[in-house]
Design a protein around this nucleic acid. Structure first.
Lengths: 312, 312
DNA sequence: GTGAAAGCGCTAACAT
DNA sequence: ATGTTAGCGCTTTCAC
């Protein structure tokens, strides 16, 4: 019978049904930048999980813009979705729109989150991730670290920076470190590296020998700049990325990076959201998943054995 | 007053409004694979344009699966969107779901299209693109071409293949050419190249000296395989991609590729859709935009001057 | 001008 | 089991 109805071209009007039942079996998702290859991977994970439990995912891109993000949230809410999954673009400035939204429907924050950490949160352990990178670089004999990052209004970028600083402060109090703040892009990775090299010209030994980058895009830009100046990666300078996007294996040398468990992340976010939808007064809850260090060419010296040189 | 209402936390229920007005100021978009970096770029272009004219874009991924695509279309239609923009996953098998959808609302096909070409279409001139690649390779002195492509159920892959064959048939009737059909992925690019090398071992002069790849992912895989075997790109073998994704500049050597005018594509698709929404009986219409060849390192011999060797 | 009423397509509750 | 009715929140119409 249902098939008969379908054959006749009938299909139920979800608008009307939603109006009556007050549920649309649809959830919204807002991401900061769909052009950043990390987010399509997150989206895929969330959508796969959503579909498998019968939910439609409606997606919007906020273009790293708080106003646009607020607009996308409002529009999705107005569409009477049942819940929202969001990766916010600004840990402070996004709070208002997030609060507004969370006020009228269940909302789960995934990956990039607002400060304060109230509500339902799903993310990856950034501190642990950075520690793994730094331990690895140290084992490979690299000593003078620089951190190239996107703007610190992005929660993950800031967490990684704080972890970077804290780690070095405790493990190598006197160690060289520099921090450059920009954005998640190849261009910025290139530019930041250019600035590092420029600043260090004349006193070559002061140049960092390891560039810790806040994502793969930045790392690719860094590698490009180094190669262009004839600086060998990883023999002279190591470069690490973050996210294990398709770029990590496409670039030369292949990037050492941190792989986040996206499937688990998506599953956790959708699961949490569904529980919140079923149980309106569910208490706040936060899930933190561990990431995995993927060691590739960009941080393993090829001609030198991987040994620890003596510290002075 | 409107601000006052908003301050009180009121926001209009688009479901109810849509039910009454029979319009939701929302359009749907379905793409075959959001993980393929080409599509986020297309999505961005479409969404930017949609937002600028006051339309919300609701996005679904069909995961290269016809059933999932049909499901996404149905769900979006059921949400009473005003129109649909789709890049289909199968030029034949997607026809039914597309027809079903186009039957109840305006639908514009973008990039990958169903065969027959009825309705509203927006795409890029694939024949011209391939011709530009082949003319360029010929000018650079490459002679033995292979084409590595995704499945021919994808309209653009097939058009490119047909153009490849037609071009070589007319310009170089006796020229060496081979075609390998797989999917849009780095893995396939690698595997296809491995097969080419394997088949050619023992008779080295039969190996192709130019690998024309149906997208950047495939090209990256091809380059990886060649480098691993110690075959120099572009000095011994040229590799070209398609789409000018972020991969093209991230990979080493940087890829010669075809850049599609995505902004224009997005603008054309949204414009066409809006006109079709306003004027229900608007006649079918097809827009074909020219693409641009971007020459980078992977097809320009570095040590040899770019000259035409004599044909035998 | 302002206000009341009908109805979009559906479903849940109620009546038969 | 099957049929009928009321109403979800909005907009449009029609009456005042």
């Amino acid at each position: 019978m249902r098939t008969a109805a379908e054959r006749l071209g009938y299909s139920t009007n979800r608008l009307a049904r939603g109006l009556r039942r007050q549920t649309t079996e649809t959830i919204g998702m807002v991401v900061p930048d769909i052009a950043n290859p990390f987010f399509p991977a997150v989206i895929k994970a969330v959508e796969t999980e959503a579909r498998s439990v019968g939910l439609t995912l409606l997606l919007c891109d906020s273009g790293n813009d708080v106003a646009q993000e607020a607009d996308a949230l409002r529009r999705l809410v107005d569409h009477q979705i049942d819940g929202m999954i969001i990766s916010v673009c600004d840990r402070i400035a996004s709070r208002q729109a997030v609060a507004f939204t969370a006020d009228r429907l269940p909302l789960v924050q995934i990956d990039r989150q607002t400060v304060g950490g109230s509500g339902y949160l799903v993310g990856v352990d950034q501190v642990d991730s950075v520690n793994r990178i730094l331990r690895h670089l140290r084992e490979q004999g690299y000593r003078r670290y620089a951190y190239i990052t996107a703007g610190l209004e992005i929660s993950t970028a800031r967490q990684r920076l704080e972890a970077f600083v804290a780690h070095l402060r405790s493990s190598d109090p006197g160690v060289e470190r520099r921090v450059l703040v920009g954005e998640f892009s190849i261009e910025w990775g290139y530019e930041a590296t250019r600035r590092l090299l420029e600043a260090g010209s004349g006193q070559d030994e002061q140049l960092p020998d390891a560039l810790v980058c806040a994502d793969d895009l930045i790392a690719v830009g860094a590698v490009q700049c180094l190669r262009q100046r004839g600086i060998r990666v990883p023999d002279e300078v190591a470069v690490t990325g973050f996210d294990d996007t398709v770029l990590a294996t496409a670039s030369r040398p292949q990037l050492t990076t941190v792989r986040q468990p996206l499937d688990l992340l998506g599953r956790a976010a959708v699961g949490l959201l569904r529980r919140a939808i079923q149980e309106p007064r569910m208490p706040a809850r936060s899930t933190v998943l561990p990431a995995e260090l993927v060691v590739r060419e960009s941080s393993v010296r090829s001609n030198l054995p991987a040994k620890l040189p003596r510290t002075m």
